[in-house]
């Protein structure tokens, strides 16, 4: 443990600066969301979040997260396995490519699917001829969401699995376990907290993505509106209380994510600390 050696003045000063900064830039927006949502009382809040279009938006958001997160879990584990357990040329390049969605503007993420699947896009005429809807329908929203959440799980697992090395797996395999058994019994328990951590952030982003989804959604009430888009629509209908009410559900989700994440972190540190020697 670190000894608290600095002079108290500096120490309290720094703590105060940090806390004040976080309060101003993080806590205040959060408080504003809940404050505005409840500004007309709990009844207005309740009716805003149980209105059919709001429920449809909630359902769609859950559906999109429910599909995109598991797909990215599978991809994330596969990518981490390939990258962490094997040596091959071009590894850095592959990691950079996996990172790419972090630094691509969400708007560009939406645009690329319009260029690909839109009626004026490369595959548009073919899709239309076969009556397949991607853009302005759920699949487009799904693709855009998968794109922006692409790196979360992989990025969490790659350093973790690299650090853990191959020894446990090799021991298990030499004792006669199959590859799948080894993964299930040895690797997965080792990475479960890290995995959960990645999944939480992946899920939060999947439910909250706005820019990319906005480009491909078409904003059909009750059909292609996710929760963040529904917030925007309500806002544009001068229905500010309802907008903030739906927004507060998303903020609540963020808070739950943070609480779960703190728990995971605590277990994770505990787990690593325990296994560390």
């Amino acid at each position: 443990m670190h000894r608290e050696n600095s002079r108290p003045a500096a120490r309290y000063g720094l703590i105060a600066v940090a806390v004040l900064f976080l309060a101003l830039f993080l806590v205040l927006p959060l408080a504003a969301v809940f404050g505005e949502a409840l500004s007309k009382g709990a009844t207005a809040f309740g009716s805003a979040v149980t209105e059919p279009d709001a429920l449809a938006a909630i359902r769609l958001t859950l559906l999109v997260a429910g599909i995109s997160v598991p797909l990215n879990i599978v991809f994330g584990i596969a990518a981490a396995w390939a990258i962490a357990k094997f040596d091959f040329p071009g590894k850095s390049l592959l990691i950079s490519f996996i990172d790419l969605p972090f630094s691509v503007s969400p708007v560009v993420a939406g645009l690329i699917y319009v260029l690909l699947f839109g009626a004026q896009g490369w595959l548009g005429p073919w899709l239309r001829a076969h009556d397949i809807e991607i853009i302005f329908a759920v699949p487009g929203i799904l693709l855009a969401t998968i794109f922006v959440t692409f790196p979360f799980v992989a990025r969490e697992l790659i350093p973790l699995m690299s650090e853990q090395g191959r020894d446990d797996e090799e021991a298990s395999l030499s004792l006669g376990a199959s590859g799948f058994q080894t993964f299930w019994r040895v690797t997965l328990p080792n990475i479960r907290w890290g995995l959960l951590y990645g999944v939480l952030l992946c899920n939060a982003r999947a439910m909250g993505e706005f820019g990319a989804v906005s480009v491909v959604s078409g904003h059909l009430r009750g059909i292609t509106n996710t929760m963040p888009l529904h917030v925007e629509i309500l806002y544009n209908e001068y229905n500010f209380v309802a907008a903030f009410a739906v927004a507060s559900l998303l903020a609540l989700l963020a808070l739950v994510t943070l609480v779960l994440k703190s728990i995971v972190e605590w277990r994770f540190d505990y787990h690593r600390g325990g296994a560390g020697h």
């Binding site: 319009v114 699947f117 839109g118 009626a119 004026q120 896009g121 548009g124 239309r128 809807e133 853009i135 302005f136 078409g218 904003h219 059909l220 009430r221 009750g222 059909i223 629509i233 544009n236």
Partner: peptide, 20 residues
């Protein structure tokens, strides 16, 4: 009847891109 609302340019663009 389903509605979609937005700035006129955005809406027309969506129709051109395949909003049905």
């Amino acid at each position: 009847i389903t509605m979609s609302h937005g700035g006129a340019g955005k809406q027309a663009r969506a129709v051109i891109d395949g909003l049905d």
